[in-house]
């Protein structure tokens, strides 16, 4: 399952880059993340509680940031599992500056298994898009705080 999209953040690229490298920000901005504990360089242990309407699940996972080319691009990897199923996802973020704003192009690929995959297949694409948009909206709020 693939997702892609674009989001424009009202700040220069350096500032957005700094934000994306701040574990506190990542923890607050990523939907469902309750806790993000550093496990070495750009590696985190994540506790996720995600509720989409009545469908609620708790997941334990790992988040890592790789292939960093500051301040242009990075790859986010998420692996996790819980009762409803498992997920392995990679997302590539590319940052472009234009007129003082940053355009983030993202492409993601996810493998999902378990009940969520068999029952929720039709919903995953939409939910992934929705979560990406929540993530960027949260980043925008973080920008305003600074």
């Amino acid at each position: 399952m693939k997702v892609e999209g674009t989001y424009t953040l009202p700040a220069p690229r350096d500032k957005v880059w700094a934000l994306l490298n701040d574990p506190g920000v990542l923890a607050r901005a990523t939907p469902g993340v309750k806790k993000l504990e550093p496990q070495g360089d750009d590696m985190f242990k994540a506790t996720i509680e995600l509720g989409i309407g009545p469908v609620k699940g708790a997941y334990d996972g790992k988040v890592s940031i790789t292939d960093k080319v500051p301040p242009e691009r990075m790859t986010l990897r998420v692996e996790g599992g819980g009762k409803p199923g498992t997920i392995r996802a990679t997302g590539e973020l590319r940052l472009e500056e234009s007129e003082g704003k940053t355009v983030v192009n993202y492409t993601g690929d996810a493998q999902i298994t378990g009940l969520i995959a068999s029952v929720g297949h039709r919903l995953i694409g939409g939910v992934a898009k929705q979560m990406a948009s929540e993530f960027f909206k949260a980043l925008e709020r973080e920008l305003q705080k600074r």
């Binding site: 399952m1 693939k2 039709r122 995953i124 939409g126 992934a128 898009k129």
Partner: peptide
Amino acid sequence: SDPADDLRGPA
């Protein structure tokens, strides 16, 4: 419209 690929067909 903003459909996603799934078992019912490609977007």
